[in-house]
Design a protein around this nucleic acid. Structure first.
Length: 169
DNA sequence: CCCTGATTCGC
DNA sequence: GCGAATCAGG
């Protein structure tokens, strides 16, 4: 497939047709092998964008944040109640800096069924283990964790720039 | 919804 | 530099 670019010939024809008042799509059809987007893009690059264009088109466009598909950024896929890990390797959860996990009073510890909006959902220990439990502390408003654990759970971790693969468009 | 040009931005 | 995606307007 011959992929021809903008040869002098085609550019000249483009200019002629454009200034002739033809629309971008018409020009694209005339030239062939190009889309009207390509034509418009080229026209702009050539600097002959302003024809007798509509003033409305020159309307001040503030800026487009262009989130494309807005992607919901979760704080972190922290281990929720039960991920049913078949594997046995060390659960790499954020190690508690102050090691509160070991200090949570047994009386406060909860089983899954005991959790509610007011209790901290922070899992402690191996979910597959019998001594697994949830923190059970007092949940902070808007968070499923107590003040201490929500601080851990919602830590920024890392801001990645644009790691969007986007192989096909 | 069709069209238009305009703009942005990943490639 | 190129052009698809996206936008805003008619």
């Amino acid at each position: 497939m011959t992929v021809i670019t903008w040869t002098d010939d085609r550019v000249e024809q483009l200019k002629k047709l454009w200034e002739g008042g033809l629309s971008a799509s018409q020009i694209a059809a005339e030239l062939g092998n190009v889309t009207r987007n390509a034509v418009i893009g080229k026209v702009h690059r050539l600097g002959l964008s302003g024809r007798a264009k509509s003033p409305s088109s020159a309307a001040p466009r503030p800026r487009k944040p262009r989130p494309a598909q807005q992607m919901v950024r979760m704080p972190r896929p922290i281990a929720r109640g039960n991920t049913a890990l078949a594997h046995n390797y060390e659960v790499e959860m954020e190690p508690d800096p102050i090691s509160v996990d070991n200090v949570i009073p047994i009386s406060q510890r909860l089983q899954l069924v005991e959790l509610n909006d007011a209790t901290c959902h922070w899992p402690v220990g191996d979910p597959a283990s019998a001594d697994f439990y949830f923190c059970g502390g007092k949940s902070v408003a808007g968070a499923p964790y107590c003040a201490h654990h929500s601080r851990i759970a919602y830590q920024p971790a890392s801001d990645r720039r644009r790691a969007a693969p986007k192989p096909v468009r």
